[in-house]
Computed example of a mutant assay.
Amino acid sequence: MGPSVLAAKAQKYPASSDSVAVTSAPSSTEGPSLTQQLLQAASTADRFKLLPNDTQFVFDFNQRQNGSGAGGELISANRKTFPALVGTGSGMVVGRIGPCGMNTFHVHPRSAELQIVVQGHLRTEMIPENGVFNNNGTRRVIKNEVGPFQMTPFYQGSIHVQFNPNCTDAIFVATFASEDFGTGQVLEEAFASSDDVVSASFGQIVAGEDIDTIRKAIPASVALGVEKCLEDCGIQRRIR
């Protein structure tokens, strides 16, 4: 999948468009989904019997999925959206981060991520586990600017973020060593806790009456980012 194809996708799906439902494994209230049947198959040979059509081995990253935001979109191939991945131990994401867009703080609980930029540039930050410090004793944050056909890893369970500092789209491909790598948006998960737990976790600097307002303001996945970039690119921040 070359940069020209991905660029065409970026034009097809502008940053401000709304996402629609994902096309995933067939399911039925009368029985297990195709993914469940593949997971329960007695052998690999039996799995192929459940995938009789050659087209079932092709995943189309042109499809739309839920989980995108105002600053771009992420298309995930995992065992739910692409049942043929069952048994491969692998998954993939193609992401478009629009001008000034940010793939907000998140983790992948079941795999490391290898991310290669194929168009534009991304500024990345990764925060390793507790105990990883700079020479001066402060917590280490690994920061890089990644350009076309450069790659960076994000370790399993590490908090990381990607930001597009330019006024044109950035497109990346990410691979995972899991069919079900999963994603957790850190702020959304933290603020899902009860008010007193959130307030205590932030050292009481977040007042109880403000917590619900903050919850509602946390952007979904890919958000519009840094104010200076928005100003330079002439982009007005959209408030949900």
Rank of each mutant, 00 (worst) to 15 (best):
M1D: 10
S4A: 15
A8H: 02
A8R: 01
K9F: 14
K9G: 14
D18W: 06
S19V: 14
T23G: 12
S24Y: 08
A25S: 15
A25L: 05
P26W: 01
S28A: 11
T29L: 13
G31D: 08
P32I: 00
S33W: 09
L39H: 05
L39R: 12
Q40M: 09
A45H: 04
D46T: 05
R47M: 13
R47A: 13
K49W: 01
L50A: 07
L50T: 06
L50P: 11
P52Y: 07
T55K: 10
Q56S: 15
V58Y: 13
V58Q: 08
N62W: 13
Q63D: 02
Q63L: 14
Q65A: 09
S68F: 10
T81W: 01
A84E: 00
V86A: 00
T88C: 12
G91V: 10
V93T: 14
V93M: 06
I97P: 05
I97N: 00
G98W: 07
H106Y: 07
V107W: 05
V107Q: 07
A112Q: 12
A112G: 15
Q115I: 11
I116Q: 12
V117I: 06
Q119L: 10
R123V: 13
I127S: 01
P128A: 05
P128H: 02
N130C: 07
G131N: 10
N136L: 00
V141D: 02
V141E: 02
N144M: 12
E145S: 12
Q150I: 05
Q150A: 09
P153K: 00
Q156M: 15
Q156L: 07
V161K: 10
N164W: 02
N164R: 10
N164T: 09
P165D: 00
P165C: 00
C167S: 03
V173P: 09
V173Y: 08
T175R: 02
F176S: 10
F176L: 15
G182C: 04
G182W: 09
T183A: 14
T183I: 14
E188V: 05
A190C: 13
F191Q: 02
S194G: 04
D195C: 03
V197M: 11
V197G: 05
V197C: 03
A200M: 05
S201T: 14
F202W: 04
F202Y: 10
G208F: 09
D210Q: 09
D210S: 08
I211H: 00
I214M: 06
I214H: 03
R215F: 09
R215M: 06
K216L: 02
A217T: 04
A220C: 08
S221G: 15
V226I: 11
V226L: 09
V226A: 15
C229R: 00
D232H: 04
C233F: 07
G234W: 01
Q236S: 14
R237H: 11
I239M: 11
